[in-house]
Amino acid sequence: MSVRVVVRTISELCLTVGTLIVLFVVYVLFWTGVKADRAMDHQIDVLQEQWSKGAAAPSPTPRSGSGGGTGGNGSAAGTPKAPGPYTYGGPFAVMYIPRLGFTWNKPVLEGTATQVLKKGLGHYRGTARLGQEGNFSVAGHRRTYGDPFKDFPLLRRGDAVVLTDGTTWFTYRIDKGPYKTVPSDVEVIDPVPRKSGYTRPGRYLTLTTCDPEWGHSHRLIVWAHLDSTQPVEAGKPAALRR
């Protein structure tokens, strides 16, 4: 084998690796966002469809999610009248945070596994249900997969976090955050998270994402309390009007 062949082969390998890396960066920065936007729109469509079918009785229509393998096999029972457990991997609510953008809205799915978080925000299993006493805790991507919590550090005390489960609007108000902590700090999603300053049981909400933006050494947390609720028939809550 001549030197020429060796040099040429090595050059070609380097070019190939370089191209692969560029393609991978395109995938992570751009394509995951495209996929996630599509998946989240689909989840919201699924919810709207469920809600329009009549929110009184949770229909047992099978849902396949978006084919990600973790799609729920039953509809999310998000109605207060029939508080069954949320279906793992299925959507059950839509979240609005005006501070992150007037059009910012994301589906909330049950579970925080990687596959679930690709399709929306994830509700920690075992934490309180939406609007119930305890700590309704939700995790979301800071970067990649649609960058839902990209502007997380902008959240301030008093900001509204509005959720709907199809029958009720829940308006939470942020009390503390963004609070930086380490990934093992599971106490932040306790029913009464101590570091938030809450001392008594109540209806709380916790949002978590990663920090720094592209890293995983820390987590950012905000805490909120349930400020008001109103039925969907009463129209959008004040926090969403402009």
Binding site: L117, S184, V186, T209, W214
Partner: peptide, 13 residues
């Protein structure tokens, strides 16, 4: 998923 962008939870499920 081998990269750190997916670690957004506090209990690493």
């Amino acid at each position: 998923p081998l990269l750190p962008f997916n670690d957004v939870t506090v209990d690493n499920q």
